[in-house]
Design a protein around this nucleic acid. Structure first.
Length: 417
RNA sequence: GGAGAGUUGGCUGAGUGGUCGAAAGCGCCUCCCUGCUAAGGAGGUAACUGGGUAACUGGUUCGAGGGUUCGAAUCCCUCACUCUCCGCCA
């Protein structure tokens, strides 16, 4: 949510910033609504004030036993007027709020301007790509079974067995242990969340169709960002405690509505996948630096796994709804001969904090909205693909396990039968 | 699932229709007193928000929402959460 005061004062500037990310703000509508709001609100508050005074008089008259009929008529009349005006005001406030909830975050001035994915900027490449490797993970091992999963649940699900299930589990441990080492506190969280929680992070009301909803009205979480961020909803933290770093491993559920035909084979795009999420509540003056730190925490995993990757900065047109600045980490996937997103690290500035009411207080007890940042560290399914495809030796039919992972997997090779 | 109790300011906790944004205590802040400290004394101390350049001035908020009433922390209804007992269960 954007600051309504900022909108009142600098609406043209906000409009042009939002245009950079492809959102056209209806300035006239906003100005009209806010002007109406002002008139109605002042009016309603004046009426409330009069009623308060008259009701007090009423009490006094009654106490002295005088006649109150005339005064009652007067108050009744006033109440009628008040009710009418209040309803009008509520309507305007609701429209104003709906407009505010619909507006995406303003891109940070440092985000590269661009219209789409193709304008994203590659910041740096790491590791060496072995272009001779081209084998797809599904053809390497039968222990990733999407057909069996289709029987059980449907398309866009997967079943891992034996070594693959264990490999994923060891990756989870490696990632969580690394996060903990880097100062994140581990959480176990609900995998379902209520509406308020999803509005808080910016997922609702706009992107309902991307979510799975239960018959009880709860939503399956599309990312651990939802529960982790909502830990802090409606709270005030101490400035001295910032940044607060939290992490969780959860499954993520996404309907993938609108992605029919895309990435239909293998683990790349699933209704359910595992992810380790890194999340921080940070000071507004440090959130950019902290985002760099968080990005490094995610990169560290790829370094530990010795996988080739690149860091890409998203252009304004490709930014997520709540984000003002995002770096994607893309890992090399031999099966596709492409870099694919494996982590997305974003700064939400105070956008989520406003929606979720997350504040910090300074020494003088002054409260301000905090900043929130988060990123994957990492998405498990895609890590599994990258690991298998990059480390598979066609001649020996073996997958090499990187050194850092051996501690958790307790083998240095997987033999494919 | 059944029965009962509760939800008030940073905390504890009073408050059953108007003088209640709310007693008292604790905590915190300022000042006084005492050589320092402790003790003691006086005063202050909720949040959110509108209008206004400002001084200032209005509104809302006692778990949430609705209702009764001229007027609701207080009465009624619905919901959420917490606690106790019973049942069930990993």
């Amino acid at each position: 949510m954007l600051d309504i005061k900022e909108l009142r004062e600098n609406i043209d500037q906000v409009q042009s910033s939002l245009l950079e990310r492809g959102y056209s703000l209806d300035v006239r509508k906003f100005k009209e609504l806010d002007a109406e709001r002002k008139v109605l609100q002042v009016n309603v508050e004046n009426l409330q004030s009069s009623r308060k005074k008259l009701s007090e008089d009423f009490g006094k008259l009654k106490a002295t036993g005088e006649k109150v009929d005339d005064l009652k008529d007067k108050i009744d009349h006033l109440n009628k007027e008040l009710k009418k005006e209040s309803i009008e005001l509520d309507k305007i406030l609701e429209s104003l709020n709906a407009l505010l909830l619909d507006m995406p975050n303003v891109p940070h001035f440092s985000s590269p301007v661009g219209a789409s994915e193709s304008d994203n900027v590659v910041i740096k490449k790491y590791g060496t790509v072995d272009a001779s490797k081209k084998v797809d993970h599904l053809s390497i091992t039968k222990q990733i079974d999407t057909e069996m999963a289709t029987k059980i649940a449907g398309p866009r699900f997967a079943l891992l067995k034996g070594n693959m299930a264990k490999l994923q589990r060891s990756l989870i441990t490696l990632m969580l242990e690394t996060a903990i080492k880097n100062g994140y506190e581990e959480y176990y969280v609900p995998y379902m969340a209520n509406r308020d929680s999803l509005i808080g992070v910016g997922q609702l009301p706009k992107f309902e169709e991307d979510l799975f909803k239960t018959t009880e009205g709860l939503y399956l979480i599309p990312t651990a960002e939802v529960p982790l961020t909502n830990i802090f909803r409606n709270t005030v933290v101490d400035e001295d405690d910032l940044p607060i770093k939290v992490t969780a491993h959860t499954p993520c559920f996404r309907s993938e509505a609108g992605s029919y035909g895309r990435d239909t084979k293998g683990l790349i795009r699933q209704h359910q996948f595992e992810k380790i999420e890194l999340m921080q509540v940070t000071h507004p003056s440090h959130s950019l630096d902290d985002l760099d730190g968080l990005l490094n925490n995610a990169k560290e995993i790829l370094d530990l796994l010795e996988l080739p990757y690149q860091v890409v900065e998203l252009c304004t047109g490709d930014l997520g709804f709540s984000s003002c600045k995002t770096f994607d980490i893309e890992v090399w996937m031999p099966g596709q001969s492409k870099y694919r997103e494996i982590s997305s690290c974003s700064n939400f500035s105070d956008f989520q904090a406003r929606r979720s009411n997350i504040k910090f207080k300074d020494k003088n007890n002054n409260k301000s909205f905090a900043h929130t940042i988060n990123g994957s560290g990492l998405a498990l399914g895609r890590t599994l693909i990258a690991l298998i495809e990059n480390n598979y030796d066609e001649n020996t039919k073996q997958i090499a396990i990187p050194k850092a992972l051996q501690k958790y997997f307790d083998k240095n090779l997987i033999n494919i039968d």
